[in-house]
Design a protein around this nucleic acid. Sequence first.
DNA 1: ATACTACCTGGAGGGGACTCCAAGTCAAGG
DNA 2: CCTTGACTTGGAGTCCCCTCCAGGTAGTAT
Lengths: 126, 126
Amino acid sequence: MTISEVSKKYALTTDTLRYYERIGLIPRVPRNSSGIRDYDEASLGWVELIKCMRSAGVGIEALIEYGRLFQQGEATIAERKALLVEQRRQLLERMEDMQRSLERLDRKIEWHEELLGGKAAEPGDC
Amino acid sequence: MTISEVSKKYALTTDTLRYYERIGLIPRVPRNSSGIRDYDEASLGWVELIKCMRSAGVGIEALIEYGRLFQQGEATIAERKALLVEQRRQLLERMEDMQRSLERLDRKIEWHEELLGGKAAEPGDC
DNA sequence: ATACTACCTGGAGGGGACTCCAAGTCAAGG
DNA sequence: CCTTGACTTGGAGTCCCCTCCAGGTAGTAT
């Protein structure tokens, strides 16, 4: 699979895909005889994983570290698990923040609706 | 309330508080006779709102725009509401991404646990 | 008086994550 | 053959969001 096909499939620019590979976020993608990337299943798997994690705000450093551990084989399973658990914790924390903000946004939107409906606004919430 | 007290109260550095004011994210905070910030209720309200929204990933531009509209009074209520609704939409989108990633992380963690428990791993999930 | 501390301003620096660009290579079509 | 277009590399530029710093002032403690 060429880089532009992968780019379409996962909605990442070719620049981003090359960038991810350059910084070691994705292991080196196989090339054909003229040096052009030919993504195999393994590479696609990495791309998909990284896209998913990045879109959830997981930092690039953590993902590089995960890949690094993965390359080192079974000896690092406990370490990898610890990394994942920590990322899960941070993710949950962010989601809780977002839940709070969502509720707040909802209240604010409601308040604006009331104002638009002609009702008098109470002071307090702005 | 001094800037360092506000800084402690909301866990934002004094640099960040000054920065927010500089870029117009927070309206100008009142100063005492020697030019030192003395945060009033209104300022604190803005700080709290901004902290909440920023921690949920709402961009600074949108928040500045909201403040700008707010300063312009009642005429902008509909516009403000539209802005909030759009931010809510984006927030929900991000939360859905994160939910997916959370589930994926959970599966990955489970898989690592099984490996640690000595069970044979099925190929597929990495 | 002087040292200390907390504050002020404006501007520069830094980190994360891309994004763009120049210069070059290769395969295919006219 | 020669152009076209997709690809290659390495390096530089950009954007967002702070974070740090230099140089200065104001009030307080010794």
